[in-house]
Amino acid sequence: MSGTQRLVAALVTVVAALLLQVTVFPHLAWNGVVPDLVLLAVVGAALVTDPRFATLLGFGAGLLLDLAPPADHTAGRWALALMVVGYVVGRLAHDHSSAQAGSARPAYPLMLAAGAGGAFVGTSVFALSGLLLRDPAVDVGELLEVVLAAVAYDVLAALVVLPAAVWVFTREPGARPAQVTPRTPRRTPV
């Protein structure tokens, strides 16, 4: 997938995830907790693209989440959280896939694990930044409850969302990271 195509795919995915997250999923909310579709989209992208793209995508998607209408918190919090998610997941996935000698699509359990980890990291970073800024001024117990509920719900959503996101970012044969950055033998014995 060329750079432009990937960019368009990322934009469409993130905007669609955002729209679904703020319009449809509140109807299916559990105690007001909705699955973080945008976060899962970033995780999906991080699994199959390179970490740099994932980091930038996380930053952009988080910025969008910070600025899109229902948001009222301090701008930049989701940007930071999703950036960290994109970087961490991208880095781990990248290392893992290079050890595994590049299969195009990650295994399903791996996706779920990445989704759960990403959700935990993302919501935690967001909550922690809120604690530091005293943005919503809630106590830690309540915060933890919401974070855990969000992670649980995210894992549930990840069952469907992550494969979809991964599919979007690997639609074209050229999109494989293994082919974008061909693995050349770097260490040749002397």
Binding site: T49, D50, P51, R52, F53, T55, L56, F59, G62, G76, R77, A79, L80, M83, Y87, R91, H94, S98, P177, V180, T181
Partner: peptide, 17 residues
């Protein structure tokens, strides 16, 4: 390998903050 450079990471984090 497609890794973000340290300066990019730093710039993004600083931008967020």
């Amino acid at each position: 390998r497609g890794m973000p450079s340290r300066s990019l990471l730093l710039a993004l984090v600083l931008a967020c903050i």
